[in-house]
């Protein structure tokens, strides 16, 4: 897979450093190219520079919140699959984000394997969309 295709790129944004620290090596080990941010404005700057295949973002954050961020992501690159991380109470807002074309959401607390599973599904969808084009 790695030989025939370029690695799937993932941007991870969560203001909890531990989430980034744990997910980055885990996803990299599973064959993805991962960039992590704990500061949403920096992440915002980065997506203006390049497109990612998959964006994973928290909803509740200081500064620019997840909803604004993912709206911008979808504007710039509609093909990017967005996965939303959310606390339980923001489930309703998570549902709202479906309307913005979000791929799926995970509720905190989650397991590494859960994230991996969702990322795999998003990847599959990406490939299908690429094939149909």
């Amino acid at each position: 897979m790695e030989t025939t295709e370029r690695k799937t790129t993932i941007l991870l944004l969560d203001d909890e450093p531990i989430v980034c620290k744990r997910l980055k090596p885990y996803l990299e080990k599973n064959g993805y190219e991962v960039e992590t941010f704990t500061d949403s404005s920096k992440a915002m700057g980065r997506i203006e520079e390049r497109d990612f295949d998959i964006v994973i973002t928290d909803l509740k954050m200081e500064g620019i919140d997840g909803m604004t961020f993912l709206t911008r992501v979808k504007e710039k690159s509609p093909s990017t699959q967005v996965i939303v991380i959310t606390g339980f109470a923001t489930m309703e807002t998570a549902k709202q984000s479906f309307q913005k074309g979000v791929f799926d959401f995970v509720a905190k607390p989650f397991k590494l394997s859960e994230i991996h599973e969702i990322v795999r599904r998003a990847e599959k969808k990406l490939r299908q969309e690429a094939a149909s084009m």
């Binding site: 989430v19 744990r22 885990y26 905190k108 607390p109 989650f110 397991k111 590494l112 394997s113």
Partner: peptide, 14 residues
């Protein structure tokens, strides 16, 4: 509490 709990889970999971 939700975030620290999530972090504990993630670390143990890792």
């Amino acid at each position: 509490l939700n975030n620290p709990l999530n972090n504990i889970c993630l670390c143990a999971d890792t």
